[in-house]
């Protein structure tokens, strides 16, 4: 299920503005890759290029190559809609569909692909996905309640359940715990550790302890200054990055000297 992503010389533009420049990295399957860096360094923008979500902003485009198990995600015959079905995403703020019940939220992605799904199959998917997101025990008695009736942390796990229900290859997380309290954050981090057995996970985080706790590899992004493009400064095993980084700016950032 999990697949490897190779990125080579990736530039991201918003119109004529170069937002991220020259990113080359490999994202390993069945691992957690953390993207860290100060505000505006382009890590979220870069994350969104992995499922072409940046294209919802008019004028956004990329140069360079981005392949998932050898398939160019930006090939001329590749539909961004198809990419997003392979590469799931969890956002900064929990965003369950407020008009849908908990169960319907989980099934939302499946209903897009396959309108006719038998009741028993649907029940199975709902249970599996919610168990997978460590939410089942909390909501199994109220699956028909609105998703917005849950707490913030539960909503975020519901969003994770919704993302994994369609069995994507890759799961992108854009600061998934930044809007949550410490207990809910812990629940999400535990969940990430379990999910990496099955998925390739890329997570953007501002919380360096979190990056150190959950990730196998860490990539540090930085910008030269306002209006300058963000760049990948260095990427290594998380343990190395947090103990003996090669670059001075990485060390400064990690030790809290800026950012």
């Amino acid at each position: 299920m999990a697949q490897r992503i190779d990125i080579k010389d990736l530039n991201v533009y918003y119109g004529s503005f170069l937002a991220v420049e020259g990113v080359t990295m490999a994202i390993e399957p069945r691992s957690v890759t953390a993207l860290i860096g100060p505000s505006g360094c382009g890590k979220s923008t870069f994350l969104r290029t992995l499922n072409r979500m940046h294209e919802v902003i008019p004028g956004a485009r990329v140069e360079g190559s981005l392949t998932m198990d050898g398939v160019d995600l930006y090939g001329s015959d590749v539909d961004p809609v198809a990419v997003r079905r392979q590469v799931g995403m969890v956002f900064q703020r929990p965003n369950p569909f407020p008009t849908m019940s908990i169960a319907e939220n989980v099934l939302a992605g499946i209903r897009l692909n396959n309108r006719r799904i038998s009741k028993s199959d649907a029940r199975d998917v709902v249970e599996q996905s919610l168990v997978g997101a460590n939410l089942w025990n909390e909501v199994k008695d109220r699956l028909d309640r609105p998703g917005s009736s849950l707490s913030g942390g539960q909503q975020q796990r519901l969003c994770i359940a919704r993302a994994i229900a369609v069995k994507p290859q890759v799961l992108l997380m854009d600061e998934p715990a930044s809007a949550l309290d410490p207990i809910s954050t812990l629940a999400i981090e535990d969940l990430i550790a379990e999910l990496k057995d099955d998925y390739t996970i890329v997570i953007v985080t501002h919380n360096m302890q979190q990056a150190a706790r959950v990730s196998d590899r860490t990539a540090f992004f930085n910008i030269g200054g306002t209006g300058q493009p963000g760049r990948l400064i260095e990427m290594d095993d998380t343990r190395t990055m947090f103990s003996t980084p090669t670059e001075k700016s990485t060390e400064d950032y990690i030790s809290g000297r800026f950012g």
């Binding site: 979500m53 919802v56 990419v83 965003n95 569909f97 993302a163 369609v166």
Partner: peptide, 29 residues
């Protein structure tokens, strides 16, 4: 319509019309 909800639909692989049906119309009902 909250951008978050629209993006939630798009990130699940919804086309624009599917996104409207999943996020915009229910919100605007």
């Amino acid at each position: 319509t909250p951008r978050l909800h629209e993006e939630a639909a798009l990130a699940l692989g919804a086309t624009r019309w599917e996104m409207i049906r999943m996020a915009v119309l229910p919100f605007g009902q």
